[in-house]
């Protein structure tokens, strides 16, 4: 046994000895093993179970008058609930959808036309657009105006001007009764 390690022998061509095979196999196992060891650490940085559990919010919308809007928190994010006026609904539906940057009809963005429910986070870089309070600037399209980089949204929360690529997102929500909704 000892002499096998000390006896010099003619080196066969690269890559086809048993020793080469063992080297490649060891390397492959090492790489796979490292990847598997890294996995739990990366995964630990994703949302934890308790964070995921806080995933629904119930809101009573009976006290929101027409033309008014409120902001509630869902998963740490602001959610805009706007009680739209007939004029706002009409403005949102009169738009030629083909001209929009992120084409969507107003109908698919609401369950009941008078209630517009949106995640209040600009799709550009995540600022909260202004337009919830009566005194806020609402932009040229009567919806929301993002103060960070000047994105403007219409009365359906669709992007109309500025750097944002997408419409304000519509969260999943259900009407529990006529006057209360559950977001999430």
């Amino acid at each position: 046994m000892a002499e096998t390690s000390t006896t010099p022998q003619a080196t066969p061509p690269e890559g086809d000895t048993r020793r080469d095979f063992l080297l490649y196999a060891t390397t492959a196992v090492g790489v796979a093993g490292t990847a598997m060891a890294v996995w739990p650490f990366i995964s630990s940085m994703n949302p934890a179970a308790d964070t995921l559990a806080m995933s629904t919010t119930e809101v009573d919308i009976s006290s929101i008058a027409e033309g008014q809007a409120i902001t509630v928190t869902w998963r740490g994010k602001p959610v805009f609930i706007r009680h739209r006026t007939p004029a706002e609904i009409e403005a949102a539906r009169a738009v030629n959808v083909a001209e929009l940057r992120d084409p969507e009809t107003d109908e698919v963005r609401v369950k009941k036309p008078e209630w517009l429910i949106l995640i209040g986070i600009c799709t550009h870089l995540g600022c909260v657009p202004l337009g919830q309070k009566p005194a806020d600037p609402k932009g040229e399209f009567g919806g929301w105006f993002c103060p960070c980089h000047g994105s403007q949204y219409d009365t359906s929360g669709r992007i109309r001007k500025g750097p944002a690529p997408l419409n304000l997102a519509v969260p999943t929500y259900t009407y529990l009764t006529d006057t209360s909704i559950r977001i999430g």
């Binding site: 990366i42 940085m45 994703n46 949302p47 934890a48 964070t51 998963r75 740490g76 994010k77």
Partner: peptide
């Protein structure tokens, strides 16, 4: 972004890491 935040927005897990 979710991986950086550890949640759905910049929050406590983000501050910790």
């Amino acid at each position: 972004v979710t991986l950086l935040w550890g949640g759905f927005s910049v929050d406590n897990p983000t501050l910790n890491r």
